[in-house]
Simulated assay, not measured.
Amino acid sequence: MDELIPLEGLDQRYTHGMRIRIDEKTHTPEVLNRLREILRGYPGPKEMLLSLSLDEGEVVHMKSDKYKVDITPELRTRIDDLLGTGHYKLMMSKPSGR
C-alpha cells in the first residue's frame, strides 16, 4: 500500500542521525563549547557524528555516545547560525519497499 507523507515529515521519519563538520582553521574552542550547549538543548534518539577537519589536512570522525539529538528545524538553524551554512548533513535511511 502506498502512503502519502507530508514533506515536512520526511526529515523526522527517515533521518537516523546528523553529521556535523567542524573545521579547526575556522571554528575556535569557544565555538565548540557553544555547539555542545546547543546540542544539549535538543535531547532525542538520533545519532550524532562529528567530523573534525584538522589544520594538517586530516579528518577525524567521532561518534557521540553521550549526545543523541532530536533533529528539529530550530536545531538545524542554530547550527547554521553558529558554524555557517553547509556544516551538517542529515543521515537518512531509505524507505523500505513493501
Rank of each mutant, 00 (worst) to 15 (best):
M1G: 14
D2L: 11
E3Y: 05
L4V: 15
L4M: 09
L4Y: 15
L4H: 13
I5V: 15
I5E: 02
P6L: 05
P6E: 06
P6R: 04
P6W: 01
L7S: 06
L7C: 02
E8K: 12
E8S: 09
G9N: 14
G9K: 13
D11F: 08
Q12V: 04
Q12F: 12
Y14W: 15
T15A: 11
T15Q: 01
T15W: 03
H16Q: 09
H16C: 07
G17T: 12
G17K: 05
G17W: 11
G17H: 10
M18R: 04
R19A: 14
I20K: 03
I20H: 08
R21V: 15
R21G: 08
R21E: 15
R21Y: 15
R21I: 15
R21T: 15
I22K: 06
I22T: 04
D23F: 03
E24Y: 11
K25L: 10
K25C: 05
T26A: 02
T26K: 11
T28C: 00
P29Y: 01
E30V: 11
E30T: 13
V31E: 01
V31N: 03
R34T: 14
R34N: 10
L35G: 08
R36M: 10
L39I: 09
L39S: 09
G41L: 02
Y42N: 02
P43T: 07
K46D: 05
E47P: 01
E47Q: 10
M48C: 13
L49D: 09
L50E: 03
S51A: 14
L52T: 07
L52I: 14
L52H: 12
L54F: 01
L54C: 08
L54H: 10
D55H: 14
E56Q: 07
E56T: 07
G57H: 09
G57D: 04
G57P: 07
E58R: 13
V59G: 00
V59T: 11
V59A: 00
V60Y: 06
H61V: 11
H61F: 08
M62Q: 08
M62I: 13
K63Q: 14
K63S: 13
K63R: 14
D65K: 09
D65M: 05
D65H: 09
D65V: 04
D65E: 12
K66E: 14
Y67K: 10
K68Q: 13
K68D: 01
D70W: 00
D70M: 05
I71Q: 04
I71G: 02
T72G: 11
P73S: 07
E74G: 00
L75K: 07
L75Q: 03
R76D: 00
T77K: 13
T77N: 03
T77A: 09
R78M: 06
I79E: 01
D81F: 01
L82C: 10
L82K: 04
L82W: 07
L82Y: 10
L82V: 14
L83C: 06
L83S: 07
G84S: 03
G84Y: 02
G84A: 03
T85D: 05
T85H: 10
T85P: 01
G86T: 07
H87V: 03
Y88M: 05
L90F: 05
M91E: 13
M92K: 12
M92Y: 14
M92R: 15
M92P: 00
S93A: 06
S93H: 10
K94S: 10
P95I: 09
P95S: 05
S96F: 05
S96T: 13
G97M: 08
R98A: 09
